[in-house]
Amino acid sequence: MTDEAAAPSAPSSPVRTAGRWLADHPAAVAGIIAVAMFAAGELLRPGFAGYGQILNVLRVAAFLGIVAAGQTLVILSGGEGVDLSVGKVATLSAIIAARTIDGGNDLMLPGLALALGACALIGLINGLGIAFLRIPPLVMTLGMIAVVQGVILIYTGGQPAGRAAPLMTDLVSGRTVFRIPGILWIWAVVAVGMVVLLRRTAFGWRVHALGTNRLASGLSGINVRRNVVAVYTLSSVLAGLGGFLLLGYTKTVFLNLADGYMLPSVAAVVIGGTTLAGGVGGYPGTVVGAIVLTVLESLLRTMQLDEAARQIVNGIVLILLLSAYGRQARLRQ
């Protein structure tokens, strides 16, 4: 995507060239920040950047990364797109799966199908409201949080039941070669799938086109509404997959199991260099963004800050991270 020809012919010192390259590759900046935070953690407490600890951070990041995959699609598709219901949807998925499966290996696939089906339905409603009723995505998905919360309370009667199947726990937490937990392989498959979907399929290019200019893509024959509905449906399904896998990790469910992923999923996408205006970005950046957020959280825990101080530092670091490159163009060019 670099555009060498258009670059102004400034005196090209290596520093400036590197700076320009970094400005074009926010995911690389985020990656450098993640490495720097591992290094800082290692200085604070030796062992922080050890192999086992890195695997641990990656394992925690995987759930956020998978939930944020759908968020990437939604934000890429533009039109002020954002899906704030992903956290609640992931929770719903885990709750449905836990109750259906209830520890039975043979019920794992039916549980997964049922959970993802319910999530797809919610995403479909989100998409229909946004594409046909023209409700702003931010508000539609916010309103959906209350609806899903209601569904959860009715479905569970306030007491979530059931547990994950042993097979799920093996898939998610079981160690493979080099002690890599299974969830990282699953995340890798999701990541490859997302990159292929966005870069190698017609649907992926339509998502980019929608984000760049909806009117133009509509006039070029793209069925805007149908694709917007598809994007939000996919977002919910991916969030549901994240919730299902999280259940494999925690084994039991709580009423707010995955709610906390709502805003971090947006932050991971933005830190990864996908612009909120849509059209520019991709999933690899989101992967790095999810890792950055998880390392940060882990670093703050290592420093043994209390909950309040952690929140403050978390906010400030987010602002600093974003101001490193997530900045919008100056009005006066």
Binding site: V82, L138, L263, V266, A267, V270, T275, L276, E307, A308, A309, R310, Q311, I312, V313, N314, G315, I316, L318, I319, L322, S323, G326, R327, Q328, A329, R330
Partner: peptide, 17 residues
Amino acid sequence: RLQPIVATFAMSFVFAG
């Protein structure tokens, strides 16, 4: 020049803390 939606989201953590 941060996008308002993420900037104020980050600030909400600061205020909450």
